[in-house]
Design a protein around this nucleic acid. Structure first.
Length: 197
DNA sequence: CTCTCGATGCACT
DNA sequence: GTGCATCGAGAGA
């Protein structure tokens, strides 16, 4: 599995978010490999985006969003969960793509153990769930996603023509006007609540 | 199936 | 002190 190049991430953040759909998230724990197909993403910008961590200024937490493209930006939230982003931007000072959901393709047994569940249908259906399943924590923050190390994103041989849908982002109150969430519709359940928004 | 609600810890005001 | 880029249990339908 070949990592995506840095150039892939040096473009408009929303374009990168859309094109990460169908790509493979790879977690290598000393040879024990877990892989999942990315099926849901969200783009977060800089001073142009009130929902973004990088909206106001560079701080210790969001510094990676202002750094080199193609790196992991990870943060801890709601007292329990880690969320994984890939830094991506062109002319703006900061930007990242939140990986919201994966569909496991390899190492499923290991992911189930990490999640402490036997329900295989929703292993990676949420940003906090997929980091738990793949043992992704702050230790991987700023990791280079363009080299085949412990965490990276690879291209896929699956050339199916996905139906890509987009909507407002989830779990935010500001910036709801931007349709910067992208997902592969056949894989995701869209609740009534979201439809009515 | 749908919806509500509390847990939880840290960054930032 | 306030507010989260969330999750899962539990109740109701």
């Amino acid at each position: 599995m070949e990592p995506l190049s840095k150039q892939f991430y040096c473009r408009n953040t929303t374009d990168v978010a859309k094109e990460l759909l169908g790509k493979l998230l790879v977690r290598d724990l000393q040879g024990k490999v877990m892989v999942g197909k990315i099926v849901e993403t969200e783009a977060y910008g800089a001073h142009n985006d009130p929902a973004s961590h990088a909206y106001r200024r560079k701080t210790d937490r969001n510094a990676v969003m202002f750094g080199e493209q193609g790196h992991a930006y990870i943060y801890f939230t709601y007292g329990n969960h880690f969320c994984l982003n890939a830094t991506a931007r062109d002319s703006l000072p900061a930007g990242a793509v939140l990986i919201r959901a994966i569909e496991p393709t390899e190492g499923i047994e290991q992911m189930l153990r990490n999640r402490e569940t036997s329900v295989s249908t929703n292993i990676g259906s949420g940003p906090g769930k997929l980091t738990r399943a793949m043992k992704i924590t702050m230790e991987q923050n700023s990791a280079d996603l363009c080299t085949a190390g412990e965490l990276y994103i690879a291209g896929s041989n699956d050339q199916r023509n996905y139906k890509i849908r987009r909507s407002s982002r989830i779990g935010i109150v500001r910036g709801v006007d931007k349709a910067w969430r992208f997902f592969i519709s056949e894989n995701l359940h869209v609740s009534k609540k979201l439809k009515s928004k």
